[in-house]
Amino acid sequence: MDDLLDQRDLVLQAFWLTIQLAVLSGVCSLAFGTVLAAMRVGPISVLRGAATTYVTLVRNTPLLLMFVFVFVAAPNIGWFVGTPFLLKGVIAVSVYTSAFICEAVRSGVNAVPLGQAEAARAIGLTFGQTMTSIVLPQAFRAVVPPVASVLIAMTKNTSIAAVFGLMELTGRMRYFTNNSADDTAIFLTFAVLYIVLVELISAGAIGLERRWRAAR
């Protein structure tokens, strides 16, 4: 435990790196996942098929293999050679997470009853009005809990970057563990840091849900 206090700079740096990984991957996966979801619910069959294939393949592959592709295999064909590790980690996590975001968003859109849009068109709202004031507000509301679950899982998944040399929280814990009784305290410290991140996302999701529920 003294090790941790003496070298708290290292712990805080690791915490910051985990936050960077989580935020950047979160933004990228949300953007790409939403595009995929739009392709999956859209009218163009080729794009629907492409997005479905992507989701099926990516969802059933372990995230560790995504990291293997980006960190170990890609340099072999001349890709990502000089790319910073942080960016490579973000790419691996985002490729994986966007498939799950896509499914969460799609289920949210499908949760809006068909009659809502039909009624909106029947009273003469244009397509834009139907979307912005009828369909999307309801879809967003349905999307918040599953997307929050995915983002929490993603935050924990950034730990796999430790396997490929990123010194984020998990990598740093490996550095501090040394087969002593102290290890339990070290483990609990790092676990609590992850729990803080998880609770932050969770609280954010609950806040959003509450706000939108009141607007109903």
């Binding site: 679950s149 924990k156 969770s202």
Partner: peptide, 17 residues
């Protein structure tokens, strides 16, 4: 299964949700 685990591996839902 859905409210509990998004199936991402080592994932989990918002505790308290």
């Amino acid at each position: 299964v859905h409210p509990v685990d998004p199936g991402m591996g080592q994932g989990g839902p918002a505790p308290g949700s």
